[in-house]
Amino acid sequence: MHRPLTIQDFIQLVVNEVARPCPLEERTLLALALTCRAFQEAALDMLWAHQDGLGRLVQCLPEDLWTYSDDPLEDITLSEPTRATTQQDWQRFDVYARRVRTLDIDDSPYFKSQSIQIRSGENEHLAGGVHDITSASFRRLCDFRNLRRFGLNTEMRIILDDDAVQEMAMSWPRLEYLHFSSLESPPTSATLEGLAHLSRYCPSLSSLCINVQTRGTVVSADVIPGGGFCNRALEQIEFRMSFPFGNEAKIAAFLNAIFPNIRSLIGRGEGYGI
């Protein structure tokens, strides 16, 4: 290939043109990645940028860690490992995980796309596998350093604490969209202090849906909420299943300090509203 054609801006223009929505978009990008080394990285970045579910990423793991089910929706069952995983097991996963920009996970029975069923030995007596999604479930997702959108819609309980929120916030500095949606009301231990981590480490976050526990919110003249860091991109927060327990004026003052441009809160009960 002529050297002028290897300029990254030119390569990106070609890949962007190939990636325009069409029935053969993925096949064309894959062919481009496999045919020319100069286009390989840009084409693979575009192929993996938007993922509906974890199916393709799970398939990057060794085949003894997952299997296809007989379900017509082509579920993938990710079983509890029968052996300790090694760094080598995750090498292929890491190569593609870093390319993901948008990750949407929906385990609703009405979501007609490839889905993941995670089963753990200690919970096999429960129908449908694991019923709680904890911070441990998200830890490996923190490797998606370039992630900009993350959405999880599930019928299971999502249980997070402030440390888990901080880990995600520090791992996803480019995050613009973060939505946790659960039909179950969780015994969450995440507080407004957890949201302060998002305001500090995710300055581009503009859409947020999460459950928090607001009881005991403290605001004083001696301590600035969030350590003085704030996010000016966020204008609306959806608390889903959360109730505004505690002093509503203090809750509003805390949120206003870390998200100064917030205009509305959406949640259960009549206590929310700015």
Rank of each mutant, 00 (worst) to 15 (best):
N261M: 06
V14P: 05
Y272C: 00
R98G: 13
C142Y: 11
P62F: 08
C142S: 10
P4M: 00
A190G: 10
I133Y: 03
P244F: 05
L255G: 04
D143W: 08
E122V: 08
T67R: 14
T191F: 02
Y96D: 02
F243K: 09
G55Y: 08
S220Q: 05
P173S: 10
Y110F: 10
P62I: 12
L24N: 13
P23C: 03
D94M: 07
W48F: 12
A31Q: 13
R83Y: 08
L103M: 09
I224V: 10
Q91R: 10
S181I: 14
T154V: 11
T86K: 09
E25A: 05
E155C: 12
V212M: 10
D70F: 10
Y272Q: 04
E25N: 04
C22G: 13
R148N: 13
I210P: 11
Q88G: 11
R240Y: 09
F39T: 15
L255A: 00
D71P: 01
C36M: 04
F245M: 00
Q51N: 00
F254E: 04
A42W: 00
P186W: 02
L29S: 01
T214L: 12
G216R: 01
G194H: 05
A49I: 06
P244D: 03
T134Q: 08
S115R: 11
L61G: 05
Y272E: 02
S264P: 01
L192R: 07
I224H: 15
S181W: 14
R149G: 12
